[in-house]
Simulated scan of single mutants.
Amino acid sequence: MKIGKLSIIIPAYNEGSTIHLILNKIKAVELIDDIQKEIIIVDDCSTDNTEQAVANYKAENTTIDIRYFKHPHNLGKGAALHTGIAQATGDYTIIQDADLEYDPAEYNDLLKPICKGFADVVYGSRFMGSNPHRILFFWHTIGNRWLTFLSNMMSNLNLTDMETCYKLFDTKLLQSIKLREQRFGFEPEITQKIARIPKIRIYEVGISYYGRTYDDGKKIGWKDGVRAIYCILKYGLFNTR
């Protein structure tokens, strides 16, 4: 399958100190089959210098296609993704956190099943493969695996990492799905909804994971885990649109 352009959606909240680093990594990636990159940054009303950091980067890197949007109020990661998805013009869309937990050098690993004509959606799993993974929180890992297990029960999939950031979608397919979750409920919601699309082909590939601690700026907490359970049941068990 020929892909002309990849849209990279970056939801950002108070990432002024690191966003240039992730943009450098994205800039350095040469995508397979001469695929072009479109970077869409959605600033969820940051209170730090994120906006200025992006403006400075754009001014110094004029050859990169970077589009910037800012919410007037803090609405949540899911809301930022909704904005980015609506603005995407690439053939395919991938989600990229503004921190440094995920490595853009692995975009091609996710693109290969698409380009070979095998997949419509590709998830990057932190729990498979031999790539490096930072060792962090036991209960956080158990929580992720349990949420994936519950999600698989509702969707009849056999994913290993439902909560992963790296999800690659056909853009038109993604834009056709009505998304509601404003915060971290995006992950279980989109998973349950794509699982119900007839003849959808979902693949997983192993990715590395350079996790952050809460001192480093990690934002997800136990309340988001509770919300994820609610979303799995809402969009899976009760098939809520």
Rank of each mutant, 00 (worst) to 15 (best):
N108T: 05
G84H: 05
Y203T: 03
R196Q: 13
K2A: 07
I190E: 06
Y102A: 14
L111H: 05
L157G: 03
G211P: 04
K70C: 09
I32K: 14
D97K: 09
L75I: 04
E106S: 09
L174H: 06
I200W: 03
L168I: 03
A98P: 02
K234D: 01
W139T: 14
A55T: 05
A98C: 06
C115Y: 02
T191L: 11
L147P: 00
D170P: 02
E189S: 06
N158M: 10
M1E: 05
R212K: 11
T141P: 00
E60D: 13
Y107P: 05
G211F: 00
R196W: 00
T63V: 09
Y235N: 12
V54A: 06
F127T: 01
D99R: 12
L159W: 02
A86H: 11
N156V: 04
I229G: 09
E51P: 00
K2H: 08
Y203W: 13
L23P: 01
T93Q: 12
H82E: 10
G4A: 09
A28V: 05
G129Q: 06
R67I: 02
L75S: 11
Y203L: 11
H73P: 00
F184S: 11
Q182K: 15
Y214I: 14
T191S: 15
T62E: 12
Y235H: 11
K219T: 14
F169K: 12
G90K: 08
T89K: 15
G217F: 01
R67D: 06
D224A: 11
A228H: 04
K193I: 02
L75E: 10
H82R: 15
T18L: 13
E189G: 04
Q52V: 10
Q52M: 13
K167P: 00
S7K: 05
D91F: 03
R183G: 06
V42M: 09
R196H: 04
Y107T: 12
E163I: 08
N152Y: 03
D170K: 15
S151T: 12
L168E: 03
K27H: 07
I177A: 12
G129V: 05
T47I: 15
L75V: 08
T18F: 04
Y203A: 14
I95W: 00
